[in-house]
């Protein structure tokens, strides 16, 4: 039986909600309030009492917001799909190997996951330069794949391990080959881990800065949204940056709201379970 909710909890809820919403709130104010109430005064207004669309319209006119978003979309989908293409068979294979070998492989992937991004990104960009992959969508995607692949393998492997063993044997006894068992029986059963892995890869790629920054540095026509945003921020274009930051965050807000029930600690802790 859940005990009765104490009123104190609403105080905690309110404080935490305000703290966590405030940074977004700040961006909304900068983007939608006339500048004379934000940058025109010493202390910017805290409530959007007067609203304008002029900042947003000007931002679209002055800087390229659409191009970087489209490139980020392309990169994110390549990263997500490639993660599944490599991660689903790998997750299955590792789940089926003996514990001794699979634990070693998992420990190995775990160490890969800890490699400092900048340390890896720098030599990768030198390789990619000779392969003509720098400043390309594919190059950024291939580099970011490294960030998401270990987690994808963990999630998929966890999904396969949670399936009852008999199920697969049953399908094999019924005469199905490994390939068709895999595609017709197993894949549909782990659709939730597959979905979670795809969403997490997609979101990670959408936000990723370090690899994108090194592989496709600030070239206006080639960089992804976070790198382009960094460019606008460092060129001191706060209005355009706020508009851009908000628009790029909208898909994330929708995804979190829709897929919230799948965003669980067990999926996010990188293969470690309590």
């Amino acid at each position: 039986m859940p005990s009765k909710t104490s009123p104190g909890i609403y105080v905690a809820v309110l404080i935490l909600a305000v703290i966590f919403f405030y940074p977004l709130w700040v961006l909304i104010i900068i983007a939608f309030v006339p500048t004379k109430y934000t940058f025109g005064v010493m202390y910017p207004i805290q409530l959007p009492l007067i609203i304008t669309l002029q900042n947003v319209i000007n931002s679209f006119r002055e800087v390229d917001l659409v191009g970087p978003m489209i490139r980020s979309l392309e990169v994110a989908f390549i990263v997500g799909l490639l993660a599944l293409g490599l991660g689903v068979p790998a997750g299955y294979g590792i789940a089926k190997l003996t514990a001794r070998i699979s634990n070693k492989l998992i420990a190995f992937l775990f160490i890969i996951n800890m490699m400092p991004g900048l340390v890896i990104a720098i030599p990768i960009s030198l390789y990619f330069y000779s392969l003509h992959l720098t400043n390309t969508v594919l190059g950024v995607a291939l580099a970011q794949e490294l960030v998401v692949l270990p987690l994808t393998v963990f999630i998929i492997m966890g999904g396969f391990r949670s399936l009852p063993r008999d199920l697969e044997n049953q399908a094999r006894v019924d005469g199905a080959s490994l390939g068709s068992t895999f595609v017709r029986v197993l894949i549909p059963l782990i659709r939730v881990p597959i979905l979670v892995a795809f969403i997490l890869s997609w979101m990670t790629s959408w936000d990723e800065f370090t690899y994108a920054f090194i592989v496709a540095p600030i070239v206006p026509t080639h960089s992804t949204f976070p790198v382009t945003l960094y460019n606008y921020v460092s060129r001191n274009l706060p209005l355009q940056s706020a508009t851009f930051a908000l628009i790029a965050t909208v898909p994330i807000i929708i995804m979190v709201a829709v897929f919230q029930k799948y965003l669980k600690g067990q999926y996010l802790s990188g293969g470690l379970v309590g």
Partner: peptide, 9 residues
């Protein structure tokens, strides 16, 4: 939501 927000944002 902030979990999905870009570090640069």
């Amino acid at each position: 939501i902030p979990f999905g927000v870009s570090t640069i944002v």
